[in-house]
Design a protein around this nucleic acid. Structure first.
Lengths: 340, 340
DNA sequence: TTGTAGGCGTTATCAG
DNA sequence: CTGATAACGCCTACAA
């Protein structure tokens, strides 16, 4: 029972040739209905299942895609992957997932492994530390679609799927201004990642448009952890002109900020407003729920998958698509003065 | 540049045969250092990379494992997968992920696809709706290791990795008793899943051991959503003898319960204690943090991977391993009277 | 409509 | 130590 039956086994049992079996199973036009039925029946009887590996080797298409992310258990990434899987599974693709742990070396190695495994495409979010682009180039050199989502690297030949970071950051800042905030701080991330730069620019533009002068003391760069949010608030509250709002590039920073604000007995949102980024599940469960930006991760995954498929079709065209999805600001208590 | 170089290309360039190239690249003993160096150098020069697909077809080992879960973006599952990936990647395995959406048909189809793709093993958490076991049997029939984690089905030949649901449920209930709770309710899930039954039994045993008689009015079966927690509390508070604590099989239920309790102006934990299950990230971020049980998902993933590897080695032995990891109760505010 | 033969890229076996 | 050959399972010209 542990033996796998091949088309040869079926052929032998039916006294025909493997080629005929193959044709019958693939609904090839050049086959008589009689033998087709016969073969199909026998195949079922013998529990035949096509060996995708052999097919892959023969056809040059593995029907696998590689998905590379920093950490798979980050809510944002796992949701993107969910979208990718749901879009690609019905078409017969399998999704191979790999983690870089935000490590460039690992990313390079991973991509090489994926290429060796003959994936039909690579969908990824680049690691924070990544500087080189040779590994991306090696994907392109093999004419394999490369799609970046969220964390992108600008390169010729690769498609990208992002959110409109600039616009939504503008929108968030505008929202804070509308709440009556005058001294709006911004906690940003590592500018090596374009997303953080875009968010900063949207923030700054909104200030300008509303006649609020940009104060560089109000810009803090930090990692994305709770402690960083606490530290940032501590720092901001030592300034001569203490801010009255903060737009954070991460929900964890926003959470840390809120914790520290509570410690300082600052009333949120009356005296201070907070907006986060990512719409992590916890933001809505808090007593003092956190306004945040939904990055539509599932849609991003589905879109990335679709872009991959498009690239696959236009193998000659080498199309390079840049999609920016509309992210949405979820207004919650931490920044809703009027609702109080 | 889009051409992939094979060992034949190298052989041709060096005027030797492909077999020799293969040997050189695989550090076969029967090869002279001179030619080996020559080949290795040339291979690097020509950007040679081994085609895993061809190797897989030849060897019968794809170096891929399939991981099947209901939804990949559930924190618990994505963390398990993280553990699996981290354990298996260094050994050259790739992880293929598939979602069942809690649908038996999809689960059956998925496993069939995975088998066709010649995965070397299947690691999975069964869908809530699954009744049949034929698809699991078909994995075993091909002598491919099958490892269940968390949500298992008892079958000969499969290994399982779970947490000690019974013990930790006992521990949680005991903890509530120690807080002085006398009328402890339990919100359970669908008993088609063994985990829920085990948790109930642990809960019941603890009551018995402490001389508290079990009251069937205090047992509520529910799904795992916030609304279910709210409804449960509503129901419990209509009883003649209103409970003073609840042990929930899910953190979302615990959250819903707390929301409703607040609505009813019940003081937690002074007048009512709550314990959840899963240690979802949000439980610790809440103002009124929720006591919960950590299912050590990362460790579960790593363990499942190790068990898979063991099964692989003992291909003859057909060992069947049942591992129960020690889960830990994280005591937080929702049930900590003494700390208040 | 069906059979024959070759090849996808590797490795293993058997000679030499 | 190296070369030739076959085989993994499948598909697809080409020939019959």
């Amino acid at each position: 029972m542990s033996e796998k039956t091949t088309i040869y086994d079926i052929a032998k049992a039916l006294n025909i040739t493997a080629a005929t079996v193959s044709r019958a199973l693939n609904n090839n036009s050049r086959i008589s209905k009689a033998t087709r039925d016969l073969v199909v029946k026998k195949a079922a009887e013998m529990n035949y299942e096509q060996n995708r590996l052999a097919l892959a080797l023969k056809s040059g298409k593995s029907k696998n895609v590689g998905v590379v992310v920093p950490y798979i258990d980050r809510n944002f990434f796992s949701t993107v992957i969910r979208g990718i899987e749901e879009e690609l599974y019905p078409l017969g693709y399998h999704v191979i997932i790999c983690q870089t742990h935000e490590n460039e070396e690992k990313e390079i190695e991973t991509i090489s492994n994926l290429l060796n495994a003959q994936v039909d495409g690579v969908l990824m979010s680049v690691s924070k530390t990544t500087q080189k682009t040779v590994h991306f180039q090696s994907v392109l050199n093999k004419d394999i679609p490369l799609v970046f989502f969220d964390r992108v690297k600008e390169m010729k030949g690769v498609s990208t799927v992002t959110i409109d970071d600039y616009e939504v950051a503008y929108e968030a800042t505008e929202h804070l201004i509308e709440q009556g905030c005058k001294r709006i701080a911004h906690i940003s991330g590592d500018w090596k990642l374009a997303i953080y730069k875009h968010r900063f620019k949207g923030y700054k533009k909104a200030l300008e448009d509303y006649g609020i002068s940009y104060n560089s003391d109000y810009l803090i760069k930090a990692k994305s952890e709770i402690g960083d949010g606490q530290n940032a608030i501590e720092k901001l509250f030592k300034l001569k002109e203490i801010p009255d709002a903060v737009f954070c590039s991460s929900d964890y920073i926003a959470l840390g900020a809120l914790q520290k604000l509570k410690e300082l007995n600052v009333d949120v949102p009356s005296d201070f407003c907070v907006v986060g980024f990512s719409n992590e599940p916890f933001t809505q469960f808090l007593e003092l729920s956190i306004s945040s930006i939904d990055q539509v991760p599932r849609q991003m995954g589905k879109t990335a998958a679709k872009v991959f498929l498009e690239q696959l079709e236009n193998e000659q065209g080498k199309i390079e698509k840049k999609v920016a999805l509309k992210a949405t600001l979820e207004k919650r208590k931490s920044s809703s003065r009027k609702l109080q």
